[in-house]
Design a protein around this nucleic acid. Structure first.
Lengths: 188, 188
DNA sequence: ATACAGACCGATTAATCAGTCTATAAATGT
DNA sequence: ACATTTATAGACTGATTAATCGGTCTGTAT
């Protein structure tokens, strides 16, 4: 693992544990096993590091989802896959999932160019748009359907995080939650 | 408005605009029109101020909702009222709504005693629990139903914030969203 | 009048920390 | 071999800022 990545990984762990303000760059460097100067060689400022971390997580997530969207199959199946897979990703990467929210509700969000969001939402937007056009999903703005869909991924995640179920029960609840989401979003 | 409240109000504005780290206590004091020492007279530390602000907003919100829950009427009507009213509150108090999320995804959250959350979730929990028992809502854990319900308030808020509709259209979308939520959560 | 309480003040301080600087060492190209 | 770029190191600093502290002011009870 090269130093640049090591810095990112360490920053993720510390930022989530202690917050942006609570983690000095010196601590990140120390725990990443690099010198202070090295950190600032790769990232000009602390904020640049924070933004780079955000972007790296976001695009990892986007690529991950994209591989599912592109898979063969009916729209409805792909729709379900995205939901299930998103929840799984969040459960497997709780720090990354948390970091995204932490960053989203920080004044640093504005440092991310507008277009990046549209770009990364594309897979969702396209699939949902197609679903609406083909009358598989509600006749509502694609942004509304997307927002409610995302709200649901977040909602079930919060529940599972607190509930502490075993793997089987957890899987069942994710499926139950999806059935409910489907009842909310399907064409009627 | 007494100084203690003025400090809270100013802190809210600045914390939302510039983040916790980005707003020095001296700036809060200055813009609140009080001396530096006064701020620390009322709040022993900066973090204590942050927590106090969080608690004050949370209980304002809880009281606000509570007044609706206690209103007469069918469970289903009250359920709908909570949804609609929560969205309205968020739209009318965007800074407070934002601050809650900001604080929720900060390392300071642990400074809030566990019990406070259960306490403030009570109105929801009780109503939803009753709805489930009376087979008006899905036969799922009350925590799951609550989480999905909250996810939806958040989802529609995000949509409305970005969509910039006029008052009439906005109201219509809130109602549409509620109908969808109802289809998700109602007993089948 | 006198005593007391507690809200308020703002200059000061002690500590922290983002970012710089200078010096090497690797790697890469010629 | 030599030159140039890239990567690494870590000591240092200047600015910032949370929190303190000694003291003032105002109202109220005695």
């Amino acid at each position: 693992m090269d130093k640049k990545e090591k810095i990112l990984a360490t920053a993720l762990r510390l930022f989530v544990a202690d917050g942006f303000h609570g983690t000095p760059t010196s601590k990140i460097a120390l725990e990443a096993g690099v010198a202070n100067g090295t950190l600032f060689y790769h990232y000009k400022t602390k904020e640049e590091l924070m933004v780079a971390l955000y972007n790296s997580i976001k695009s990892e997530l986007a690529n991950n989802i994209l591989s599912f969207v592109q898979a063969e199959g009916f729209i409805t199946t792909r729709f379900k896959n995205i939901f299930i897979h998103s929840v799984h990703w969040a459960l497997k990467n709780p720090e990354k999932f948390y970091y995204i929210q932490q960053f989203n509700f920080s004044p640093h969000l504005v440092k991310v160019p507008r277009g990046v969001f549209k770009q990364q939402a594309m897979p969702y937007t396209q699939l949902i748009g197609e679903g609406i056009r083909k009358k598989l999903l509600r006749q509502q703005p694609v942004e509304l359907v997307t927002a409610l869909f995302n709200g649901q991924v977040y909602g079930i995640y919060q529940y599972l995080k607190a509930a502490d179920l075993d793997a089987g029960e957890q899987e069942k609840k994710i499926n139950d939650a999806y059935d409910m989401v489907w009842d909310m979003l399907k064409y009627m």
